[in-house]
Every structure is written in C-alpha cells, then in structure tokens.
Amino acid sequence: MSSPHIFEGHGVGQTMFRVMAALVPGIIVYVIAFGPSILVSLAIASITAVAVEALMLKIRDYPVKPFVFDGSVLLTAWLLALSIPPMSPWWLIVTGTVIAVVFAKHLYGGLGNNLFNPAMVGFAALMISFPAYMTHWPAPMALTSAHLGFADQLSYMLTGSLPAGMDVDAINMATPLDTLKTQLHLHHTVSEVLRMPIYDVIGGKGTVWIAVMYLLGGIYLWRARIITLHIPLAFLGGLFLMAAFFYLKDADHYVAPWFHLVTGGTMLGAFFIATDPVTAASTPKGKIIFGLGIGALTYVVRVLGGYPDGVAFSVLIMNAFVPLIDAYTQPRVFGHVKQEEASR
C-alpha cells in the first residue's frame, strides 16, 4: 500500500444513483402530464437491463455483483425509457434495452470502454427499426378526452389491446416538434401552428414542465460537482444560436430559439445524456466543442432532417469525434510554455 492513504471517491455507484435521483423530479412531472405508464416503461427497462447486464458479465467472466450494482446499467435503462414514447409496447422497450446493454456497452468492453452512449444507441436502433412506434406519443392528459387509467395503460403496453371503443389514434398524437414540422410543410406559418392546442406559451403543453424539471435536476448535478456546465451550456448555446440565426432571418418559417430549448429531448440530452462521462469529450475546451456540435447538429436534424428530434443522432455523431477532440484540446500543463503538440 502506498500513498495516498485517504480517499474521498464515493464509487461509481454513488455517482450513478445521484444522477438517477436528479431525474426524479422530471419523472414526477412526466407522470402528472402523461399518466403513470412511464413508470411501467422505467420498470421494464430496468429489469431487462439488470438481467442482461448480469448475463453479459457472467458470459464475459466478470464479477457480477460490483458491476450490476454500480448503477450504470440502470441509468442507461432510465435514459432510454425516458427517451422513447411512454406507453410503448413492452417488447419495444426490451429490444431497445438489450441493444443498448449488449451491443453498445458490453461488446465494446463494458463499463468505461464504450465509444457510443448506450441509451442513444438503443434509441437510434429503435427509431430506425420501428419509426411508427417511436413517433407516436400519447397526448398529454390535459388535451385528450380519451383518458386511459393506469390499468388500461398497463394492459395496452403488455398486450396491445385497448378498452372497447378506443383506437390508437384517439390516444396518440404527434409531438410538439413533429407537429410543427408537419404543419410547416403544409405551408402554415409558425405563429399559426403555435396557436394549436398542444402548445403552451413557449413549448408543448405538459412537456415544457418536464423540461424545466430536467433543467433543475441538471443544476443539482452541477452543484453536486457530478457534471461541469461546459457540455450542457455549449449544447444549449449551439442549439440556441443556430435557431436564433434562422429565426431572425425568417420568423414565419423558423420557430423561436427558446422553443427548441424546451421541446423534444433538449434538456434531458443536455444535462443527462451528452454529459455521460464515458462517451463525452473530457477536456474543458473539448467539452465545449462537443456540446456545441451536438446542439448545432440537433437543430440541423430537427429542421432539415427527416426525424422529429435530433438529440440522439447528434450525440452519437459527436461521440465518434471524441478521441479526436480530446487529442487536440489538451490543456497546458503547469510549467509548460504552451500546449505540447507531442500529445497527438
């Protein structure tokens, strides 16, 4: 045993569980807005993730207990469950979770070795494979008369059957982002679209408050020194600047930048997904480039691309650049005149 002889490190587990705790306010508001089905999604994803993680650790001859309880796989499960529509069928959640844990995490070498964010790999695979299920969200409870109770939601998720006299289209609708995109294609102006009932003052009804809770959770993570603000602020900044540029150019066809900040996966992505340390850039300058890149790409995918939201794809694209970004943004070491080029 050699120095140091004292340690502060709380363990990977404590960090992961604190991140999960920071998600709780957002989840509570989620339940208020969309009903309790999201809790079922979280449960299905969690159980699947732990089971698959244990199996993979067993196959790879790793000690199961310390790694299952490090919390990392649960966090992956939660982030995936919170990214896909609530009231998704059980097999969609299971498929996404298995892809995230087996392919994105363990085939890359497990905890700490994966290049791509596992939750986002799972999300992207589902988005490409099952676009219909991934683009239809239940309408917020405030907006729909066809109101499902918890038992009905559970039954739909597990068996796909709805109470008599109800069909999927009655309970589902496009997301605020998706609606905006579709309506703009139909040559409505932004201000016309935003008068539709699913919109609140600045974003989607109900979803705005979830975003605000994620923001508060993110601020907690920053205050608890689990994350630094480089990535979230750069992410939000990159998205805002892109949106502001187009908004100022043509406010009829491009929605206001603040709309982008509170819709879709922006806040969850900025504070909880892009900040995943394993897959994010790690130098201060690198984190800023990484965040700006995600923000700008998110805007591009949202506005010009075919998908309703762009956070997942942007995160994955920027993940691929991380080794390059890190190598070129090494900070100056104490006593060195300038950043050494040798590190490349």
Partner: peptide
C-alpha cells in the same frame, strides 16, 4: 478499483493540470 468512467474528477483536481 472499478473501470475508469472518464468522469475527469482527477483532471479537475490535478494541481499540475495533467489528465
């Protein structure tokens, strides 16, 4: 020890600004 998750707390604590 667990695998490194690149949380960068070490780099933030390093008085020499190493990684």
């Amino acid at each position: 020890a667990m695998p490194c998750t690149r949380c960068t707390h070490c780099a933030e604590a390093c008085p020499v600004n190493l990684r």
